[in-house]
Write a protein that binds this DNA or RNA. Structure first.
Lengths: 210, 210, 210, 210
DNA sequence: TATGAATGAGGGTTCATTCAT
DNA sequence: GATGAATGAACCCTCATTCAT
């Protein structure tokens, strides 16, 4: 297989970016199978042949799009250290970001899941994506447990998977299936359920939140 | 257009059933797009053309398979009235059945979700499936609230969606993505999180369950 | 090939007739290629398999339908000997019958023409059909020529083909292509053109017709 | 949907033309239904898929072929203004061209008629084709009537349809059904019948023609 | 005789990918 | 780098015909 090198000229870089952007839009709108290479090219304003100057196959383009999405989700969901030290507020902030991150990319992530069933490489990318969120959640819980603020009997990893899944799943139901709800109410409820589930001991300052 | 009628003879019924079974297996193993009509026929041991004696298209077969799966999930997840009257135990039983039902069919349900994006009829089937589970969960919660056993401030429907989604999502992660866990531990944890999240007041008899 | 014998029982005869009738209707409405054997069977109210009890193929059915149509056209277009002896009136009567016969069956005759291109047997049937009309017209003209009523320089056969074609063609344009005209006016004009073309010498009695 | 654009390069133009030419030949030889896209491709010397670079379907190709044929028939049948002013000679010239135009394309025109039964667009093309010839004939007759050379009682349009149909129909019988005749004799007779039918008054110069 | 299930050759169309210019 | 024509494997679906019951 011929390795497609990174484009060297500014023009090449622009073309490549246009293809990635067009691909992302197309995949998001129509799904992996339904998107033809020609669609992407038309959207990017280049000819069919040009596509193969930059990508060896449609799958390779998808992989790149997926990687970009995963990257964005990582950065978009970091609860800054500047956030309040109040545990409940931190959980709430995390849930809001989590919900937004999954909402913004739910279609592409689902495509990634679907495609991951067939392609080894994509499977790894998906697992990596999940792992970051899981670890983040598990670490947060462990910290709370160490501080005596959460039930120490809970397995941190499994709990994080379950409660994180609750948020992730709700994002899908909310956006893809059109379950009516407003973000504020959803985040409030998700946070309340999450906090109670882990047995978050209300510090004196957050008593009124509950 | 020729309408495909139900088979009139025993032989026809057998063939039709063989096709549905073969289709279900094939879809489950390879996904909707990857399955060719020929694959289904080969698996069912009939010729190419026979398929079209019973189904007008691959999509129609899938619709039938999906409907069957949905039907099974309905019946498989009913917590019998004979089950213990203890709320915690009922939640546990429901979670176990819920987890098993989704586990057994997670791939097909995901295919249904995927296909529902494109087909109106399938979308309705999917929404119907969800609705049954949501309503069941919401009704259960409402009953607990009325008995003074659960936090009355929680919106029953939204809460059911979120906590139900937690279980459903875990089924996927567990089976499709291979997250290691044993059923017993998973059900235990899901139940504990669920019970605490809704503020289930431990009746005196179930104190030791927690 | 198995020769399908004529049906021996009354029931068999009825089924066979139903198939021929259904085939004729179907061919007339939809054309040879567009008609499926199943359509004919459904229309006749018999199962697919029964068709082959009476006809070895779809083409054989068509042949039979075509033969029936040709037969009808023969008998329908005979100007009875009782008709007026006046040549002009006889031409008019012939044209009226000719026009009606072709009108009633134009679709099927065109199908026959089309099918005749591919099938030897049908070609003969078509030629036979044409020949009867041509000969009839040529004989009529020859008689008029012998009586000194028509231009003796005209080749009877070729003239009959041309003028007969004029009528036949008009039937198509009129019915198939929807050229507006009423039968009376059309027959009048066809007859006038025909009579003049052959130089019909107006006998004293028919002077006012011209 | 991808719109098939006109080919942009000389090579593309050549390929497209080759397909149209091949299609025309194939349709003419075997009829619309009998022609497979592969036949056309083989004849044009291109691969299967190339066909769909230029035409979205077999039907679209036929439409183009038919339009080309109709166009040719229009131009081929114009009696130049340079032709003799003698009415009889003009009719003769028109008939010769008419006969030739229909002879050269009779199979394709019949296919057009056949296909027009099913397709709206083709029906319009066919009606347009007919209308041009009808109008031309009607105008010619009207002019003769105004000059006092033809029977003023004849309806120009209907007469043109009938006499034009005579020529058209003869072209079919002659070529498709193999009625033996030589062109000269046929044109002579058609012209004689036509002229007499409309009551063409022999101007002094053409007396001997009759 | 009638039924209807089963067959499989046949044909149209799509689209990812290659390659000459 | 860019273009767009060319390729052909892959797949869905139709329907005339056969055959066991």
């Amino acid at each position: 297989m011929i390795v497609k090198s990174d484009p060297l000229t500014a023009r090449g870089r622009r073309t490549r970016e246009a293809l990635v952007r067009a691909g992302r839009e197309a995949f998001d709108e129509h799904g992996y199978e339904a998107v033809r290479v020609d669609d992407v090219c038309a959207r990017a304003g280049v000819s069919h042949g040009t596509f193969y100057t930059y990508f060896t196959s449609k799958e390779v383009l998808f992989r790149e799009v997926a990687a970009a999405v995963v990257g964005e989700m990582f950065t978009a969901s970091v609860v800054g250290p500047a956030a309040s030290g109040d545990p409940y507020a931190r959980i709430e902030a995390a849930n809001r970001l989590y919900l937004r991150a999954w909402s913004a990319n739910s279609r592409l992530v689902r495509m990634l899941e679907q495609a991951a069933a067939a392609e080894e490489g994509l499977r790894e990318l998906l697992l990596e994506l999940r792992e970051v969120f899981v670890r983040r959640g598990a670490d947060g819980l462990r910290r709370l447990q160490e501080q005596g603020l959460a039930d120490p009997a809970l397995d941190p990893r499994l709990t994080a998977i379950m409660l994180g899944g609750m948020v992730e799943h709700f994002a899908r139901v909310w956006l893809d299936l059109g379950e009516p709800a407003d973000e504020r109410a959803a985040v409030d409820l998700l946070t309340r359920l999450w906090a109670r589930a882990i047995g978050l001991t209300p510090a004196s300052t957050s008593a009124e939140d509950m």
